[in-house]
């Protein structure tokens, strides 16, 4: 079995299984912890159930913008670049379509009436390049900024690596730089699998917990009338 066959087959299967199991392990492990009900009389009925904070916290208040703009903007840039490449590049969409078909027996067209849109390779490549540039910028910032340097640990650097690796290898595969396409594709898949395997165990889990954390605070604060 060559590298690509491994990456496409058993590698992907194991990564998927570990990803699914790990994510649920961590989410369920937290969700089933004790939660004491808040018996205090609410100031206002929290009718948004924490949703307001989930939305509000997506951009810093103007009072905080000065010191956080770089992190915020770069964060958005690399996230958007990553997500554009992830969700609008045809081979990726086909992979997700295959997963959706296999797991739920649905097609995007069947559910929404239209096919999932994809973007030309050039745009994906550009988005990836922008994402890589932003990721490098945030890494440099992490190394240079005293606060970030102090609070960073293995998780931060490794999570950075497993995030940039699939984008970089994807770009290399797309443009056939450095090695035969199959090798590059295999490396790309393996880097994605590394991402999937690491995902549940590191800070990448914020992709899920961000909603729970913001929502919890939003719910607690909103009923107090506290500043969100």
């Amino acid at each position: 079995m060559d590298l690509l066959a491994f990456a496409r087959g058993p590698g992907m299967q194991w990564a998927t299984a570990i990803f699914v199991a790990g994510v649920l392990w961590r989410l369920v492990g937290v969700a089933l912890l004790r939660r004491k009900p808040d018996l205090s009389a609410p100031r206002v009925a929290a009718k948004w159930k924490g949703l307001r904070l989930i939305v509000l916290r997506s951009w810093p208040r103007k009072e905080f913008l000065g010191g956080t703009a770089f992190t915020e903007v770069m964060g958005y840039v690399f996230h958007i670049g990553f997500l554009v490449a992830l969700f609008f590049y045809l081979p990726h969409v086909l992979f997700f379509a295959d997963v959706a078909q296999g797991l739920l027996g649905v097609t995007f067209k069947g559910v929404f009436g239209v096919a999932w849109p994809t973007l030309p390779g050039g745009i994906i490549y550009f988005a990836s390049a922008v994402s890589v540039a932003a990721l490098i910028a945030v890494l440099v910032h992490r190394l240079v900024n005293p606060v970030k340097r102090l609070i960073s640990n293995f998780d931060d650097y490794f999570s950075w690596f497993v995030t940039i690796a699939p984008i970089a290898t994807g770009m290399a595969a797309y443009s056939h730089i450095g090695a035969p396409y199959q090798t590059l594709l295999a490396l790309h898949l393996l880097s994605v699998e590394l991402l999937m395997v690491w995902f549940p165990f590191g800070k990448l889990m914020h992709a899920f917990t961000i909603f729970a954390a913001r929502g919890s605070t939003g719910m607690l604060f909103e009923r107090k009338g506290a500043t969100l």
């Binding site: 961590r26 810093p60 964060g75 609070i151 640990n153 914020h206 954390a213």
Partner: peptide
């Protein structure tokens, strides 16, 4: 409890 645990799980070390 659950809420504090979610907080502990969520920090991304952004330093903000």
């Amino acid at each position: 409890g659950r809420t504090a645990a979610i907080y502990m799980e969520s920090c991304i070390h952004c330093g903000m």
